[in-house]
């Protein structure tokens, strides 16, 4: 089953969008490995036990020299954006990364012909 470049591009993008859409509804809300470690070293969590609902992994931070508020924090449009906002954020991210990677590699890649 060999497919053309265009089919590969569109097929790949569709798969990415499906994964992103599923992620909005199915992704685990548990902290990731780094955040869990931050909770563990603060004594808020045992090594293999559950994570606290309201734990703050970043409380372990050592630097407050720089703060930045992203336009779509945590892949959402804020509390009021709900699931629709999250879907918009993830889809926008996928399209931006896809476009950026396409344009960047187009500008840099070796011209074959």
């Amino acid at each position: 089953m060999n497919i053309s470049n265009t089919q590969f591009l569109i097929g790949g993008l569709v798969i990415a969008i499906l994964i992103g859409g599923l992620a909005v509804f199915l992704a685990s809300g548990d902290p990731d490995g780094l955040e869990s470690t931050a909770l563990y070293v603060q004594g808020e969590k045992t090594l293999t036990g559950p994570s606290p609902e309201d734990g703050d992994p970043e409380a372990v931070g050592v630097s407050d020299g720089f703060a930045y508020t992203a336009p779509l924090p945590d892949y959402s449009m804020g509390e009021e954006g709900g699931k629709i906002g999250e879907i918009f954020a993830v889809f926008a991210g996928i399209l931006i990364v896809f476009g950026l990677a396409f344009i960047a590699s187009r500008l840099i890649a070796v011209k074959t012909k």
């Binding site: 470049n5 790949g12 990415a16 992103g20 991210g93 896809f98 990677a101 074959t112």
Partner: peptide
Amino acid sequence: EDKIPLVAVLSAGIFAIQAF
């Protein structure tokens, strides 16, 4: 140049799956 679709799809796919 023929790898451009692969780079674009891998980037988008890695971004999407990192959200999951």
